[in-house]
Design a binder for these strands. Sequence first.
DNA 1: ACCTTGTGAATTTTT
DNA 2: TTCACAAGGT
Length: 689
Amino acid sequence: MSLSVISPTNIERENETLNEIFKSIDENKSIIFNSGAGAGKTYALIQSLKYVIRNYEKKLKKHNQKIVCITYTNVATKEVKERLGNTDLVLISTIHERIWELTKDYQKELVEIHKEKVYEEILKLEQKLIVDKEYKKYQELNDNNKEKFKKIMLEYRELFFQNYSTKAAEFKKVFHTILDEFPEMLTNVNYFRKTVNTLYTLEKLSECYEKIKLNNKQYKKVEYTSNYNHDRLHKMQISHDTLLEYGLKLVEKYDLLKQIIIDQYPFVFIDEYQDSDEKIVLIMSYLENYSTKIGHKWFMGYFGDSAQNIYDGGIGGKITDIHIGLNSINKEFNRRSTKEIIDVINKLRSDDIEQISIFDDCNGGSVKFYIGTKEDVQNFIDRYINEWEITEKTQLHCLVLTNKLVADYSGFKNLYETFTETDRYGGMNYNQLNNELLSNDSSKLGEIPKLLFNITRLLVNLFDNKTPVIDISPNESLFEDMSIEDLRELIIQLKQIKGKTLDECIKSIETYYSKVNNEKYRIIMDWIFGFENITSDLFENYLIEKLFNNISDNNLERAKATVNRLLKIDMYEYQLWYKFITDSQEEKVIYHTYHGTKGREFDNVIIIMENAFGRNKDYFNFYFENFMDSNALGDEDKQKYGKIQNLLYVSCSRAIKNLRVLYLDDITDLERGIKEIFGQVNLTNNKLQ
DNA sequence: ACCTTGTGAATTTTT
DNA sequence: TTCACAAGGT
């Protein structure tokens, strides 16, 4: 067995790194702790928090001070809380929660900033209306006609949105007579839609601006709506990014706020700093500068790895340009992977971190690069199931680029495709599909995905003997007053639900819903469905209503066909989807997106790769082509190069023992780069080997 | 030959 | 929403 022996020297050296952090904490010298993949970064963070608690608890309690720990995701918040154990001395949360807690009571100041923001937005839109070519026809109107056009469109607002996604010819028909004075406006329906939308937005913002100025009662409070991903400025509601923006402005503007934060929270830690928004780092650097200025002690610790910044908006390596003077501490040990993997991933970073294994027995892994075609993928995977003797326990993890592919390979292709046919998740709402159908946080599922999830969960739980009875109940008290006999009866009734497809299951539920005449049965079903008197007709209508916009005659046909497709999908497929979401798949091969594997580790990894990613036809090939001479790239190309490198780094560093890359495009021009990183290039076709 | 318009397909992820 | 490309117009 490998990866188990650590020499005393290495233990000591690892402790030295920790001691370096502790020393900085004692000296109030803010740090940036960099460590590569699998280094035990979170461990270092937890140890640092514990160190502060151990050594400063009395002092902190005396002054009613707390330690702040910021994580990037709610999942990470939970993990740190669990690993640190129960303490009220440390406030662990996401940055958004913390900033909102710190600023929400300064409503007067927030509204003032909001007013400025609304005004800026108005100016921006007005400028666009004058310059952008989409508004050309509007620009050609005289002032009088501009007003007139706007007035008409404000009047027909409802009609406008009712027909928003109808085809151009249809749309023109609807507005033809209404706009007979402005035939030119309708020539390009897309431009028309954009123009009218902009006019509506401007109208709403102007109204909001006026009401704030007039001290209107409903405009005295700004709200952070974390469940929405967009600002609704005119409703005084802001979303994630704007919250950070306002936070930054408040901190920038008010010295008193800076002092309050510094004095109340003398230790701040940020986990996964590379994903933090630049605005956060600015806030922290302002705080640090101010603490120096007023001579109050303050410590800031950034923990992360700039090479693992794979999201737009993350600060990555730029952090040290913005927060100046950080004491940089690097950790060189890798606690995850075999030497063979580490040697490869070391080539995929451009900073001075070069990892070595902490284990003496670190050999025994393997990395190989293959080329093949799409048709080879299945064979390739099967081959390694055999070669690595993969079982449902050991599992092989296969990384692909898109969620669509994950859905295909994981066996719920129909489900995914049918959702793209709906209004709610197709067309311009296409980008919400992954969020609301594939979120592995079930509380983030969309309304209909959540309903399907609940139904599937009930069935999975009912027929899985390991599930405690309580898990099929909406709340703990439901079973409290029941006798064992009644409970058994209820379970037997529930287990009557039968059906190969969703449709058949719903019909079966309908039958028993009225037949069993059991109040508890109804309570459970009503809770799962979210409405009462469940029938399959009601269910179908509910799906149509929630998944489609305006159900006019020919739209209804389409809606019915799509919903029918959903109903005819095998329950087995819903189960595969359910297990994907709950991360409880019992297959030999588990599929992920590259991005989705961040923070995780697997013994055996296969990465399927090709030139293109998204709209970018030259993505991974661009990286390999330039690998030998990346310094010669221009600024923009260098940035692109770095982004691809980080994604490659994250993907390859998931592997503990065995890593295979299967490349699906021609590599003639990239061969040198690839060989430099992965060594020999192999062919999937055995004859040619 | 060039410009305008319409259509359909498309990255990942978090708050 | 944004982009590429096909279709259609001048």
